[in-house]
């Protein structure tokens, strides 16, 4: 577990006071025996995982590994079949309102009111979080400018007309607006152009530098390697490896280690022999 300095508690609209006092743990997120079954299929199988505060945590795994399901349960979107999810020691399912105050989430398939402009969406989200109007207006102007959504706003483009990349950006803006302490981002770089990706990386680095914690899920190993200081590899609903990037890599590239743990379909000599005529 790594230790980082605490960030100051944000002002109105931000998180609740840190519970627990001196006895509080150092984890930003703790999953204990977390389980989800869909009928007879076990999607997440009694996962135990600790994400230290201030870390940039990468959750990687093949398609259908249970990453999104686990993150959905950790952020109050999907009720677990069993186990616990604690965000800064707050039980997400015992006190979801307190947990959501300190969480910023960019989920997979984010549902947004389609008939609002990005600026309107953020304004309402600020109001709903009880933030002062002036603070909301300043932050929106800054977020829209940095995320290059200003022009769309001037044209009155509605969220429903945004491209996939723009939806990611506005989703990220809703996650950042209230100064969360833990950001959970599901495939944040998907469909984002390289220039915007650089901006996104700079934002995320600034967030962790200020003491915040980030969890991203991704399929892109090189991305996780370049961004994250801690990694967990998840497959078939179980955690196969978890620790610092170097511990998990064990002297190899993350991709090699991932393939070694998860397994890969080998292409035999006779397979797809017809390719290329």
């Amino acid at each position: 577990m790594t230790t980082t300095p605490e960030r100051p508690v944000p002002e109105p609209g931000g998180p609740t006071a840190e519970p627990g006092g001196p006895a509080a743990s150092e984890s930003a997120l703790e999953l204990a025996g977390l389980r989800r079954t869909f009928g007879d299929k076990v999607a997440v199988d009694d996962i135990d995982l600790t994400v230290p505060r201030g870390s940039f945590f990468g959750l990687v795994g093949p398609n259908g590994a249970g990453k999104t399901t686990a993150l959905s349960m950790a952020t109050g979107l999907l009720r677990p079949s069993g186990g616990k999810a604690l965000v800064h020691d707050i039980d997400v399912w015992q006190d979801p309102v307190a947990a959501k105050r300190i969480l910023g989430v960019l989920p997979d398939g984010l549902a947004l009111p389609e008939r609002l402009t990005g600026g309107e969406l953020l304004t309402y989200w600020g109001r709903f979080r009880g933030m002062p109007a002036g603070v909301v207006a300043d932050r929106i102007a800054e977020l829209m400018r940095i995320l290059e959504l200003e022009e769309a706003e001037e044209l009155g483009t509605l969220v429903g007309e945004y491209s996939t990349g723009m939806r990611k950006k506005i989703g990220l803006a809703t996650a950042l607006l209230h100064t969360p302490r833990l950001l959970v981002l599901d495939e944040p770089y998907e469909a984002v152009d390289p220039v915007s990706a650089r901006v996104l990386t700079a934002i995320l680095r600034r967030f962790t530098a200020a003491g915040g914690t980030i969890i991203i899920s991704s399929h892109v190993m090189s991305l996780v390697e370049s961004l994250c200081d801690r990694v967990a590899i998840i497959a078939a609903g179980s955690v196969l490896a978890d620790g610092t990037l170097d511990e998990v890599r064990a002297g190899r590239s993350l991709e090699d280690r991932f393939v070694e743990l998860v397994g890969a379909t080998e292409l035999g000599e006779e397979d797809l022999a017809w390719i290329g005529g």
Binding site: T75, G76, L77, V97, K100, P113, F128, R129, T174, A175
Partner: peptide, 16 residues
């Protein structure tokens, strides 16, 4: 109508 507020919009907000 177009003004229908879908519950799913508010899943991430700290509302009871």
């Amino acid at each position: 109508g177009a003004g229908t507020l879908r519950p799913s919009y508010f899943t991430l907000l700290p509302f009871g």
